[in-house]
């Protein structure tokens, strides 16, 4: 299965409430909070397109757009599948 490549990482600043969930759980430490307490992608080159930030954002503020079209499912590592 081809690895998805990141095309775009969007954060809707008007909707982001700065809860920090996306920053806390990003497995690659891609995200940070800016001076206005909004999340932003500080190290986009490290993003592995797992979309956990998008799935866990309570404010629907994150959209991760990946290259492998038609394959938005990513292996579930960080969510405690299996026996976690």
């Amino acid at each position: 299965m081809a690895k998805p490549a990141l095309k775009e990482h969007r954060i809707e600043r008007q909707w982001c409430k700065g809860c920090g969930i996306c920053v806390h759980f990003c497995p690659k430490k891609v995200l940070e909070m800016d001076e206005e307490d909004k999340a932003f992608a500080a190290r986009l080159e490290d993003c592995i397109c797992c979309r956990m930030c998008e799935l866990r954002c309570p404010d629907l503020a994150v959209e991760v757009i990946c290259e492998t079209s038609g394959n938005n499912e990513t292996p579930d590592k960080d969510q405690g599948g299996g026996n976690a």
């Binding site: 008007q14 409430k17 700065g18 799935l55 309570p58 404010d59 629907l60």
Partner: peptide
């Protein structure tokens, strides 16, 4: 939107 729930409220994740 933005919705009325507090920052980090889990209800938004359920909506998601």
């Amino acid at each position: 939107f933005p919705h009325i729930w507090c920052p980090g409220c889990g209800h938004g994740i359920i909506l998601n």
